[in-house]
């Protein structure tokens, strides 16, 4: 609702009115936001004291599991959005492009190593990969980054080393396997005649608009990116976690574990487990540690290579950027390759 008189105000006055009204508006929304957050806290503090509300065991566990996946992945999503903001709004336009090799194969190889400097797991990598496409990376290049970075990011390497050390070639298998898959998938998708057709309509449109939007200060642009990335990612994170929780409640864990000692079945069971549980790559080594005595080392490598790339939550998040067909092809290729890596390790080591 505006209270200014519409017709009688001339342009000159309008110019003067504009700024203060905008900042008044901002103060108003700052107040609304703060009060809203305050209300959420008050409500949460109130309901938190109520004690059990008679939700039956399995439903309660479903919510607990879904909440656990959300809380576990949220900090990494936030970190990914923040890094995406840095890439899009704060580093010079051509800094990333300037030093990259020109040959596509070498270029993708260099891009697959980017992740070493970026402590983000897979859910945080999607906003970053989107930022890279907007920055001018080709779709296969950003996909190479997307697949490699969660596996070779420093936190993942440290936690995998903490969990397994150098035993059974698990750490080495994970790093080399992840790099190989990322580069081969990047190469496969670079054969696609129209790379932009792999993107969803909404995101392709955003790429076309590019940075030619209205002039914004860096702060405004940063908050704009924050708003856009959360509106794309958060529903996916929430729904992915809900489905992951529901499946875990529905499928007895022992079914998967009994398959553990057979070299072939244990690989399939591990891929299924990775697909269902949907935890971030930075923490999945600890997740799989209790199963280490049950499953063969190659199967664990399969879990550690497949899980960061394909799982329920990740498919929901990637669907914001890529078409369903691309995700199906991607899942198939990655599943075959990670199974192959696992089989080699199972039979050789």
């Amino acid at each position: 609702m505006t209270t200014t008189l519409p017709a009688s105000v001339d342009d000159h006055d309008h110019q003067h009115d504009h700024r203060p009204r905008r900042s008044r508006n901002r103060l108003l929304w700052l107040a609304i936001g703060t009060i809203g957050v305050g209300a959420i806290f008050a409500l949460r503090a109130f309901t938190g004291e109520l004690g059990a509300v008679g939700v039956p065991g399995l439903t309660a566990d479903l919510l607990t599991l879904a909440t656990s996946v959300i809380i576990e992945s949220l900090p990494f999503v936030v970190l990914g959005v923040l890094l995406s903001i840095v890439v899009q709004a704060w580093i010079p336009e051509d800094l990333l492009m300037r030093y990259l090799p020109k040959t596509p194969v070498l270029r993708r190889a260099a891009i697959s190593l980017f992740g070493i400097a970026l402590p983000v797991c897979e859910c945080g990598n999607v906003p970053l990969a989107r930022g890279l496409i907007l920055k001018g990376f080709s779709v296969p290049e950003s996909m190479t980054f997307l697949l490699a970075a969660p596996i070779i990011n420093p936190i993942t390497i440290v936690t995998t080393h903490q969990a397994f050390g150098f035993e059974d070639g698990i750490l080495v298998g994970r790093i080399l396997g992840g790099l190989a898959i990322a580069n081969i998938v990047g190469w496969l998708f670079s054969l696609h005649p129209q790379p932009n057709a792999m993107l969803t309509g909404r995101f392709a449109q955003q790429c076309a608009v590019g940075s030619h939007g209205p002039r914004q200060s860096r702060t405004e642009k940063s908050l704009d990116i924050f708003m856009r990335e959360s509106s794309v990612l958060m529903p996916a994170v929430f729904i992915g976690s809900l489905i992951a929780g529901a499946i875990q409640v529905a499928v007895p864990r022992d079914v998967l574990v009994t398959l553990g000692s057979n070299p072939l079945w244990s690989i399939l069971a591990m891929m299924l487990l990775a697909f269902v549980i949907s935890v971030c790559s930075s923490v999945d080594a600890f997740f799989i540690l209790p199963f280490a005595s049950t499953f063969m080392p190659g199967s664990i490598v399969t879990f550690l290579v497949f899980g960061p790339i394909i799982d329920i939550k990740m498919l929901a998040i990637m669907r914001t950027t890529f078409t369903a067909k691309v995700l199906l092809q991607l899942s198939l290729v990655v599943a075959l390759m990670s199974a192959f890596i696992g089989l080699v390790i199972n039979y050789v080591v």
Partner: peptide, 26 residues
């Protein structure tokens, strides 16, 4: 780590509400 990142997101979220960036998408 979780609490620190959550606090950052809380501040960013409220600020983005306040600044309300112009709608660049059609």
């Amino acid at each position: 780590f979780t609490v620190v990142m959550a606090a950052l997101a809380l501040v960013m979220g409220v600020l983005s509400l306040a600044i309300r960036p112009a709608n660049t998408e059609e």
